[in-house]
């Protein structure tokens, strides 16, 4: 018996040693944590080909999930792609490593209007990756009237034909905008009004969907859906009867940016990766694949005509400069209020 124990122990140790040396091999690598479906899958291979740096790639479904994974600090991702308000939050709790933009050879190509944004006014921590808007995707065969207002999502005519996102931020944003308030309001009374409005809407809603909503919408499961512009591009490509509109009451405009997380051991490699994604041909590859809008004009010029001229992905400046089009602020202090509202809305109808 003892002999066997020794042999198995030895085997286990050798196995572990093999694993460890495998990890410690001198081939450089970086770990990247990005949104699901948010990169052209070929791009990581291209990066490894050119630089010899291996990319370990993982995905998350939303900012909050990413934060919940990264915040405890026991997993270390080098490059992450949070949205505006999440970057603000991560800066405030000191989770980000400063980025030296002088090391990024393609940094100057990024359009000036995507730099020095409110969440990172000095461009110290983030490099913009993609941007987009929130609007309504609708099926032109089922909706005959013009779609230009959030009001249509409260129209009883479309009972059982509306998809909302299962995301408190985006849904409460819709209700606040319909009411004419700011999406960043801290006013409890306004939030209560938004809650009442969403509860009023609940009987009309077919489902509160996640990523599976894209496919369902393309499959004509519903007539209307609140969606991000990039997802709208993908859906319209699948089903040409779909169209996208940003309501006149204003909406959310977001920028997802690349950041380096605090304590990263591969800061040099992370800079190279970020720089690589800023190269016009690579940015164009990604933008063409995922449907979101690139902040790099040189990359936009490389896109196919129909994408480049799409009002969905590249709306006119007027829409972006509309004072009613806002960016989210960090909602940390309100997160419990938001979550309570959302639970009540979803529970109101079952």
């Amino acid at each position: 018996m003892k002999k066997w124990t020794k042999i198995t122990m030895k085997a286990a140790i050798m196995f572990l040693a093999a694993l460890l040396t495998g990890c410690a091999s001198n081939k450089p690598s970086i770990t990247v944590y990005n949104w699901g479906d948010y990169i052209d899958p070929k791009v990581n291979d291209l990066f490894t080909e050119e630089t010899g740096i291996k990319v370990v790639y993982a995905e998350y479904a939303n900012n909050e999930e990413m934060y919940a994974t990264v915040e405890p600090g026991n997993v270390n991702y080098d490059v992450i792609f949070p949205s505006d308000y999440m970057i603000e939050k991560m800066i405030s709790v000191d989770m980000l490593e400063p980025i030296d933009t002088s090391k990024l050879t393609h940094y100057t190509q990024i359009d000036e209007r995507f730099k020095a944004l409110q969440f990172d006014p000095e461009n110290r921590y983030s490099v913009p990756y993609m941007w987009g808007t929130v609007g309504i995707v609708y099926n032109t065969k089922m909706v005959n009237e013009p779609v230009d207002s959030w009001d249509i999502l409260w129209n009883p005519k479309y009972k059982g034909q509306i998809f909302m996102y299962d995301s408190e931020r985006d849904s409460i944003m819709v209700a606040l905008k319909k009411l004419g308030y700011s999406m960043n309001t801290r006013d409890k009374a306004q939030l209560e009004e938004a809650k009442a409005l969403l509860i009023e809407q609940a009987p009309l809603v077919l489902a509160y969907v996640g990523d599976e909503g894209k496919g369902k919408m393309a499959n004509e499961e519903a007539a209307l859906m609140v969606a991000w512009s990039g997802d709208a591009m993908v859906m319209i490509e699948e089903n040409p009867d779909l169209a996208y509109a940003v309501p006149k009451e204003g909406s959310n405009y977001f920028v997802d940016s690349m950041v380096i997380s605090k304590g990263s051991k591969n800061i040099e490699a992370a800079h190279r990766y970020i720089d690589f994604l800023c190269r016009a041909d690579i940015a164009a590859k990604n933008a063409a694949y995922i449907g979101y809008s690139t902040p790099i004009s040189a990359a936009k010029d490389l896109l196919p005509e129909d994408v480049k001229n799409s009002e969905v992905a590249y709306p006119n400046e007027e829409m972006i400069n509309n004072p009613l089009t806002e960016m989210f602020n960090d909602p940390s202090d309100l997160i419990e209020v938001y979550s309570n509202i959302w639970t009540q809305v979803k529970a109101s109808n079952s």
């Binding site: 909050e64 489902a207 979803k346």
Partner: peptide, 25 residues
């Protein structure tokens, strides 16, 4: 509940999941 209930049926499991993944409470 999420996939077949269309997010409209809120059970206790959903509430727990939300506390850990989104609300961080």
């Amino acid at each position: 509940t999420r996939l077949l209930g269309g997010g409209k049926v809120i059970l206790i499991g959903n509430i727990i999941e939300e506390q850990f993944t989104r609300t961080r409470d």
